[in-house]
């Protein structure tokens, strides 16, 4: 009678084996059709460099020159296809040095109008890309500054009141001081839209108002000289 007992026990051992699968946090769980999830076609953020050679050791991979396919910098000189916004697709001409910075003040100007459309998009982008350091109203009092991580972020309305738009653009392109380049996150048009809002903040306008034509109402009337060229 001992053997039937063994049989019963083995059945339960098998049950345990089945049930105990899958509590490893690094395993997503059972896949229905694994080849649908781990496809040979290239997908974003899948490490093909190593997953195609799972049985290889690191030294074997090094020897064969197998490297992970991850985010890469576009080839030098590549120009993004911009469709109708072609003027925003041109590469930035000025070099990343002090002479470029001072030249930007005179040579680089916003191609955008200070219109409702541009400034409102600028506000959205400012809240996304700038406010955590520069603060919601640009006083340099964002959360990162309040938490003591980065100190001395200048206020647009006082210290940077007279900063030229070209220099702001140059800074977004290359970074300046502790601020890094934001060229990889914002398109050229988006950068100019942010600058349109920053120009409001420089004048102390935190909630811009617009006239019947959808143009920014200035506290002091000043005609935009070359508004005909802008879009």
């Amino acid at each position: 009678m001992k053997r039937p007992l063994l049989f019963t026990l083995s059945v339960f051992a098998a049950t345990m084996g089945i049930v105990s699968c899958g509590v490893d946090p690094n395993s997503p769980g059972v896949e229905y059709m694994p080849d649908m999830y781990r496809s040979p076609a290239v997908e974003a953020y899948v490490d093909y460099g190593s997953s195609k050679h799972l049985d290889w050791t690191q030294s074997q991979k090094d020897e064969a020159g197998v490297k992970p396919i991850l985010a890469r910098i576009p080839a030098a000189g590549s120009v993004a296809y911009m469709g109708q916004d072609a003027i925003f697709g041109m590469p930035y001409a000025l070099p990343n040095d002090t002479s470029g910075y001072s030249r930007a003040a005179k040579e680089i100007h916003s191609p955008l109008l200070s219109s409702k459309e541009n400034i409102e998009k600028g506000i959205v982008l400012f809240n996304r890309f700038c406010q955590h350091c520069h603060g919601k109203e640009g006083h340099g009092d964002g959360k990162i500054s309040q938490n003591g991580h980065i100190a001395g972020i200048p206020d647009y309305a006082t210290k940077l009141k007279d900063l030229e738009e070209g220099k702001i653009y140059h800074t977004l392109q290359y970074g300046k001081g502790l601020m890094g380049s934001h060229a990889s996150q914002m398109s050229q048009k988006e950068r100019w839209q942010v600058i349109e809002y920053v120009k409001c903040l420089q004048k102390g306008i935190t909630s811009p108002e617009f006239d019947s034509k959808g143009m920014l109402k200035m506290p002091v009337a000043s005609a935009d000289a070359d508004s005909t060229k802008k879009i």
């Binding site: 974003a44 953020y45 985010a71 890309f129 955590h132 959360k143 990162i144």
Partner: peptide, 22 residues
């Protein structure tokens, strides 16, 4: 939560492409 950085500061391609992007 602490530093109030918008999701799309880092995952900036979520607004423009198929992938949110790391």
């Amino acid at each position: 939560c602490k530093n109030e950085i918008d999701c799309q500061y880092c995952h900036s391609s979520a607004a423009k492409s198929k992938h949110a992007g790391i």
